[in-house]
Structure formats: C-alpha cells, structure tokens
C-alpha cells in the first residue's frame, strides 16, 4: 500500500554565519490516511522544525515530503496548521478569521452562500458558532484554540498539522479540548500529525507515537503503536493495562534512555 504522507530521508541543517547546526538527521516516516500520529520529544529536539518542514514553512536540507506521492515544498491549505499560540488575526472576528482561509480555498468551487454556510458548519463543529462576531481578544485561550482548529478544518486539509495545540492551556481546558479533537477525528477521519511534549496526551490521542532523540542531529528513536480501541474514554483508560504500558514505554524512552541533559 502506498503511504499517504511520507517523510523521505529528511535532513535539516541551519546555517548562521559560519556556524552550522544539524537539527534533524535521516527522518523517515510514513503516515496512512486517517491515522493520528504524535511526535514527542524534549524541547529543542527539532520537532517543531519537523512540523514546519511538513507544513512547507521551512525547507529541507536533504530529502523531501511526499503527500499522495507528490512532493510538497511550499505551504498550502492541504496541510493546514493549528499553531501553538492560536495565531488568530486580532483585527478580524472569529467568523472572518475562519472565512479568510475558506474564501481562498473554495474561491472557485463554492458560492458565497455556500462558503458562509461552510464557515458556520466548521464553527459549529468546535462549538464556537455563538462567538462568530467576537474578536480574538474577547474570548478565552481555549476558545481561541477552538477557532484555530475550525480555521484549519475549514480548509479541508489532507493532513492536519497540530503544533503543540494544547500547550498554552490550563489542564482542565486542555482535557476538554483533547476530547473535542478526538471526537472530531472520529467523526471526520482526518489524517493528523501532532507535536507534543505531554506523554498522556500522546498516548490518549494517537494511533502511533514517534519518539525523537535529543538534538543536535535528532532522529526518530522509536515508534510506538498504541493498541487502544476507539472511541477512547479518558476515565476508563486510566486503569487500562495497555494504556499504562504505552505510557510507561514513552516515559522510559524520554527519561531513561534519552534524558534531557541540559534540563538536569
């Protein structure tokens, strides 16, 4: 079977003046359609760089990203990003923020009324339709992130890229939003690539967890399949043995074999 999204021998080197730093080394990863894959690693290991490469916001030094067997090397709505700090445009309302992408992506294929309905449909998916005329500074952090997700979903991306989407939220809001993302994934069957540094989040949400070694020259250390049936329930999983095993496995990788030296 052909891979849906393929990261093929990706190296990334940053050059600043005469100093060069190798951030990523020999990254190979294939993701199937509808799969939810998390990339986990200590901060500074280059996982955000990797996501930016898939998004096309950063170029590769070697290797390439293939989406449905076609190379992608510039950003586009087929790989919509949910940014860590929401990145909503503060001068636009919630509705206009989502509409910005919709108007570009469906300029030719949808009428004005259809686009409007599509924006509202996506705001409904994340339960934010009630705030359509609010500006980002009038809604909470969790709500902003919901709108960010709606903006990305509304572009009908082939791959949804989540860059630590829950990192800036408090624990309760985070859990709530994780459940929402799980429900959306269940309902829409998106292919999702998520960056995270939260072990529980990775195990709860993912089909596979990609664990990265510490940089410089970070590589994929281990890939873990999460054999948990969906839909998953947070409370039931707390005592589930395979959930705990997966969690244990990731923790061992991160804190025993690849301890973050600088943090000690």
């Amino acid at each position: 079977m052909q891979a849906y999204l393929k990261l093929d021998h990706i190296d990334k080197t940053f050059t600043r003046g005469s100093a060069t730093t190798e951030v990523l080394k020999e990254i190979n990863l294939t993701i199937d359609k509808g799969e939810y894959v998390s990339i986990i690693g200590h901060s500074g290991c280059g996982k955000s760089t990797l996501l930016n490469i898939v998004a096309g916001l950063t170029g590769t030094t070697n290797g390439c990203v293939l989406l449905e067997n076609r190379e992608v090397n510039s950003p586009g709505p087929d790989r919509a990003v949910v940014f860590q700090n929401h990145s909503l445009l503060p001068w636009l309302t919630v509705y206009e923020n989502v509409k910005l992408g919709v108007d570009k992506v469906f300029a030719k294929t949808k009428t004005r009324a259809e686009r409007d309905a599509w924006v509202m449909h996506n705001l409904n998916l994340v339960q934010m339709a009630h705030a359509r005329d609010k500006r980002p500074n009038e809604i909470s952090g969790g709500m902003k992130q919901r709108v960010g997700i709606a903006r990305a979903l509304a572009m009908e991306p082939k791959v949804l890229l989540l860059d630590e989407p829950f990192g800036a939220l408090d624990a309760l809001t985070r859990a709530h939003l994780q459940d929402s993302v799980m429900a959306l994934h269940q309902k829409l069957g998106n292919t999702i690539l998520m960056i995270t540094h939260d072990v529980d989040e990775a195990v709860l949400l993912s089909d596979r967890i990609v664990m990265m070694t510490n940089g410089p020259s970070a590589r994929i250390g281990e890939v873990l399949e999460v054999p948990l049936a969906r839909p998953r329930k947070r409370l039931e999983l707390a005592a589930n043995s395979s959930y705990l095993k997966c969690r244990q496995r990731v923790l061992e990788f991160l804190y025993e074999r690849h301890r973050f030296v600088e943090a000690a």
């Binding site: 916001l57 709505p77 940014f83 990145s87 445009l89 910005l100």
Partner: peptide, 26 residues
Amino acid sequence: PQDYRNVAAVVQLNPLEFFTKIMIPA
C-alpha cells in the same frame, strides 16, 4: 509577527491580499 506570515502562507494569500489583509492592519 512571524505567526501572521505563517497563516498567510498556509492560506496562500497572494502578495496583494497579504498587503491589504495582513500588512496594513498589523
């Protein structure tokens, strides 16, 4: 902010749209 530029890149705004919709208001 780089974030706004990233948003514009993902949405694929053309230079004119980038100027009117991102640059001027920002």
